[in-house]
Structures are given as C-alpha cells and as structure tokens.
C-alpha cells in the first residue's frame, strides 16, 4: 500500500521553444553522439576482449555461479529450509530435504539442484539463506553442452565451494545452532561475538 505522503509528484519539465521545435535538440544530441564516435582513445579502455582478457571483479559482490558452502567439518552447511527456492524469482532451485545423518542437525538437503540456465543471478537466494549456505561466486564463464549439464547438483555446488573458497571466503562464520539440537547436547557451536551484535 503506497501512502499519500510517499508519493512524490515530479513536474514535467517546461520546454523552451527550441525544445518544442525538436531539431535544435536533435542537433545537440548528435554532437554528443559524434563526439563519442570520434573519441578513439576512450573506446579502447572500455571494451574488454573477452575471453582473451578478463575484467577485474569486485569479488565480494559479483554474482556468478552459485556454490554451496561447507561447515568446518566439511559437511554441507545447508539445512534444506527452502528459503532460497522460495525467494528465487526464476524458480531454478530444486531441493529435496531429508533427515540428516548427523546428530546435531535434523534436516539436510538430499538433493540440491540449481538450473544455471534458468537462474537470473539476482542473488536473492543468498539474501534469503538463514545460514549463509548458498553464495554466488565471482566465477562467471559458465558453459555446457547440454541443458542437463547446466543443472548443477549438490556435489557440483560443493565442489565449486572447494574451488572458490580461496578467492572468496565464506562471508560469515558458520553458525550451526539453529535450535536444531533440541537441548540434548549443550556443546553446540555458538555464533561468534561479533555476529551476535
């Protein structure tokens, strides 16, 4: 619901006679266009000859192929809560949950497939994940010969974590206590002090 006070009316610009006549403005526009057309030096800077050259990325926020993070024990950090697949606007994440084989957790993904061809790399899954298990890596040159090949399964996504963890370490320290232990085992990993704030 948009409230009255949130609506800002922007006045249409008042046009001068030359604006109304179009042509002077068209000519002014052409000046800009032509300036760019003849500025040879600039051009070389802005275009990167991919794949021979690769652009430097800001690793922290680049949204490339996904990875599934591992906790310090090397287990998949995902708890199969389906938040990512719910948040996903492209419906490209397919999860099947199951009972985990580990005593400190109850749910884990038996299957975790991402259709990288359907994905729009919006990063919503990363935002939605309550345990920072899914992250987008700076890895962007992604090719495959078939559609099937581009559906990344859990093993592949975990492998991507192994490959990329040096470039982009896990954003937050792993938190394994989501109240999942049910109080039977007091010795569970706690969120670090910084995170608690």
């Amino acid at each position: 619901m948009i409230r009255d006070e949130d609506i800002m009316m922007v006045a249409p610009p008042t046009l001068t006679t030359s604006d109304k006549l179009y042509l002077p403005q068209v000519i002014a526009g052409m000046r800009t266009t032509l300036r760019h057309m003849f500025s040879v030096a600039k051009r070389a800077e802005t275009t990167v000859q991919y794949p021979e050259q690769k652009r430097k990325l800001r690793v922290e926020n680049y949204r490339g192929v996904h990875r599934l993070n591992k906790d310090p024990d090397g287990r998949v950090a995902c708890v199969a809560c389906f938040m990512c697949s719910t948040a996903c606007p492209a419906h490209c994440i397919h999860i099947e949950a199951g009972e985990s084989p580990w005593p400190d957790r109850e749910k884990y993904p038996v299957k975790f497939d991402i259709d990288e061809l359907r994905c729009i790399y919006c990063g919503m899954c990363e935002e939605a994940c309550p345990c920072d298990a899914i992250e987008l890596t700076p890895h962007y040159d992604l090719v495959g010969k078939s559609r099937q090949e581009m559906v990344f399964d859990k093993e592949k996504l975990l492998r991507i974590f192994d490959e990329t963890k040096d470039v982009k370490p896990r954003k937050n320290p792993p938190v394994t206590d989501y109240g999942l232990t049910g109080g039977q085992d007091k010795a569970v990993a706690r969120p670090t002090a910084e995170r608690k704030v």
Binding site: T33, H36, M37, F38, S39, R43, T47
Partner: peptide
C-alpha cells in the same frame, strides 16, 4: 561498427 564507436565499444 558505428554504433559500437558511438557507445565507446569496438
């Protein structure tokens, strides 16, 4: 080509 140049591309 021209549109490339206009848009600072190649």
């Amino acid at each position: 080509k021209l549109s490339g140049w206009i848009q600072d591309r190649i």
